[in-house]
Design a protein around this nucleic acid. Sequence first.
DNA 1: TCAAAAGTGTTTCGGATACACCCATGA
DNA 2: TCATGGGTGTATCCGAAACACTTTTGA
Lengths: 250, 250
Amino acid sequence: MRKSGSTEVFTSLDDFYQRGDQVYLPHLSVDCAIFGFHENQLRVLLLKWKGGKWCLPGGFIKHKESVDTAAHRILQERTGLTDLYLKQFYVFGDPKREKEKKNSPHWIGKRFISIGYYALVEFSKVQPHPDVFSEACEWFDIDEVPGLIYDHKAIMMKALEALRFDLNDHPVGLNLLPKKFTMPELQRLYETILGESIDRRNFQKHMLSMDILIRLEERKTGGAHKAPYLYQFDKRKYMLALRQGLKLGW
Amino acid sequence: MRKSGSTEVFTSLDDFYQRGDQVYLPHLSVDCAIFGFHENQLRVLLLKWKGGKWCLPGGFIKHKESVDTAAHRILQERTGLTDLYLKQFYVFGDPKREKEKKNSPHWIGKRFISIGYYALVEFSKVQPHPDVFSEACEWFDIDEVPGLIYDHKAIMMKALEALRFDLNDHPVGLNLLPKKFTMPELQRLYETILGESIDRRNFQKHMLSMDILIRLEERKTGGAHKAPYLYQFDKRKYMLALRQGLKLGW
DNA sequence: TCAAAAGTGTTTCGGATACACCCATGA
DNA sequence: TCATGGGTGTATCCGAAACACTTTTGA
């Protein structure tokens, strides 16, 4: 029993069921929608239960641990990343939210209130790791998500909504894109998150006018057509602009 | 022991300390910043502990109760209002957030994670009720708030920030103002929430252009100067506009 | 009668939108 | 050579911001 870190302190899965409440706060969980961007598509990382259904990666909060720290710890176990952008967006507190749950005597069979986070990760840096309850950990295109357990579909949709809402005043591009990217790639990111298409020329003009991008000498070669320039964010100016309340996004 | 409803099931304060965890979820609380608008000032409702310090009204979640329901129940006990606008805005989950707390053997002495809500109420309809722990319940001008226990000041500031952020796409005016109000009153509301002054003429033009206000025949008499018109919101159009994602506020 | 607040304009300006043209590349 | 995608530039429009004048009221 050492597949992931979350149950390190336990000797077996059964032990986890029995003694989990000595380590974790009861009735509280953290669920995360991990977003990545790959091949011009917004994606979300899901786990497959040994039962069969898919779910969002999640975990529990240790007795003396901050909720944010718990979320970071849980995500690190799933993605291998220590430094990812994480944002708490909602609490799901309906006592009936876990439809399929059987009221077992274990602490884990009780009612849980879930704190929802979304994470933005650089797709290529992620190494998906299933946890002890899961047989798979895979990326899904945002509009090809299968049925999920409990209210996880609702949680995911709310996360997406929050992301959409945050697009203009949070470092979304900075955290979803690789260091170097092209203008069209940046545009696709905005388009998939917003779910609408944007005029190519106006988008470029707008982005450049914000003075947060650095155009590199290189161009992205290998494409079938004219080679686009590569850009990277001017992280200092980017963060400064955000702090000043400037609307970045579209 | 029947000053408020929150401890109805208990026979005494001591009983509440002893058996509280049989009724409420452990480690979880709800704290509310209740906002009102009176005499052209944004105000917040605070409780005074029998110890002496002020705090935000709060409470706990029953075992089979939804978190939203708990927040409504708690607020009703403080304000007497059954129908108020309530929004969950953040979870405060730092294990060190309750500085002054002594680690007592009671459930209530343990570490608590607090779910923050803000409420918008019509000032005149509120009848402040202290709870069993409190000797007073009073309105404070938003920038004259005294020192608060734990991290309640931070919670209040975050609530205010959330309110500011929500101003454009949530029914803020509708819930803070009385049925009938004048255009200058509406403007003061926006100005105090945003913390900036707005051109009188542009504000009026803008508000009227959104087609969510009904001008009444009456005017507000008694003032020292020219009598302003009274308005009320066209609730149907207001809500429709919100649902369509129209930016209402300023 | 006058200061202060309220109602109703007009002018101006900038950012968003729409659209046209040229360039590079692989099929 | 040509279809496709990428880079750059210009005209237009609309809403926001700036600003002027009149009206009402109690002191």
